[in-house]
């Protein structure tokens, strides 16, 4: 029964990941906590991207724009308008997500009619425009010096507490995204991805669904951005550049776009490589490049397809 194989894997995987995540929170040393928090934020970002890429078949190169908008709106409200304290931070986070949703609506309406390579290029261009606005609007964003002095949330300064809170939030978001992926909405998106023409024929408002997926993904990316702002006590324009989008794309494809947990596996792998490789060699970028090329050539379905393959071999 090939169908049950991913399901079984998923249950085992979920339990393992949850246990490992909690263990890090309880026993991890501070270095590990910092790295794990960084991974959590990146994983949520990649996971939200996969709602657009894997589930809806739209390769977006402007996802970083929503991530950065979330972080910057939160940061500006804290730094320039003094929305600190628990209540202020919560309100700032809500407004940050709302701003990102609004931006995604505007960009989404512009791009929803193009597809394939042109979608990639147009999202790249619009994403870079957002980056340029952040870069040039110095009085508000700090430009390339960065927006520093973000207070965050009182009580979350400690690495362990922040990790635990981030873990709970990311886990809840993952569950939420999983529910969305398995809902009628999610199935419709998959149908549109596989055959947009057929979906349109049976009366699915294709563009509306695509737009909804795009905006929904942006809201989760914005939440990850808020996490980033609190984590670093600052925001920097690089978080909006297409390189950040490309990093997430690499993570998504590395893990496997067709697996719900692919982006998480990809994000963890990508981050571990970028933490670990520089300790081994000065030429760590080459090593990372080689790993990426080898995975693309030998495992186009991503790392999780390897696990599935091993699993099915055991069963024979």
């Amino acid at each position: 029964m090939p169908a049950s194989s991913p399901a079984r894997l998923r249950h085992v995987g979920t339990v393992l990941v949850l246990a490992a995540g909690l263990a890090i929170g309880v026993f991890g040393r501070e270095t590990l906590l910092v790295q794990a928090t960084d991974i959590l934020i990146f994983a949520l970002f990649a996971l939200s991207l996969n709602l657009v890429v894997g589930q809806s078949g739209m390769v977006s190169m402007c996802h970083a724009a929503f991530f950065a908008t979330g972080g910057y709106v939160f940061g500006v409200l804290q730094v320039k308008y003094g929305w600190t304290g628990v209540g202020g931070a919560a309100a700032a986070a809500v407004l940050a997500i709302a701003a990102s949703v609004l931006l995604a609506l505007v960009i989404g309406l512009l791009i929803i009619r193009v597809s394939h390579a042109y979608f990639i290029m147009l999202t790249l261009a619009l994403g870079q425009l957002v980056y340029i606005v952040i870069w040039k609007w110095h009085s508000m964003t700090g430009g390339d010096d960065g927006l520093i002095g973000i207070a965050g949330v009182p009580g979350l300064q400690d690495a362990r507490t922040f990790y635990m809170v981030a873990f709970v939030i990311v886990a809840s978001c993952t569950a939420l995204l999983f529910t969305i992926a398995r809902s009628a909405f999610g199935h419709t998106l998959t149908a549109i991805r596989d055959n947009p023409l057929r979906a349109a024929f049976i009366g699915v408002p294709v563009r509306l669904f695509r737009l909804a997926a795009f905006v929904l993904a942006a809201s989760f990316a914005a939440l990850a951005g808020v996490g980033q702002a609190i984590f670093h006590r600052g925001m920097f324009p690089s978080s909006a550049s297409f390189i950040t989008s490309a990093d997430a794309l690499v993570a998504v494809v590395l893990g496997g776009t067709q697996w719900f947990f692919g982006p998480i596996v990809g994000a963890i792998t990508f981050k571990i490589l970028t933490y670990g490789l520089p300790h081994l060699t000065d030429y760590w970028l080459s090593c990372l490049g080689i790993v990426i090329i080898v995975v693309a050539l030998s495992l186009p379905g991503g790392l999780l397809s390897l696990v599935a393959r091993i699993d099915s071999r055991w069963r024979k």
Partner: peptide
């Protein structure tokens, strides 16, 4: 398509990859 192209080199490269991953983890 992963089954298709993964047949030949899949074994070796995934071992190599696993090696790198382990190395990264160890250093971590």
């Amino acid at each position: 398509s992963s089954r298709q192209s993964g047949r030949g080199r899949g074994g070796l490269s995934s071992i190599r990859f696993a090696g790198l991953l382990v190395a990264g983890l160890t250093s971590l």
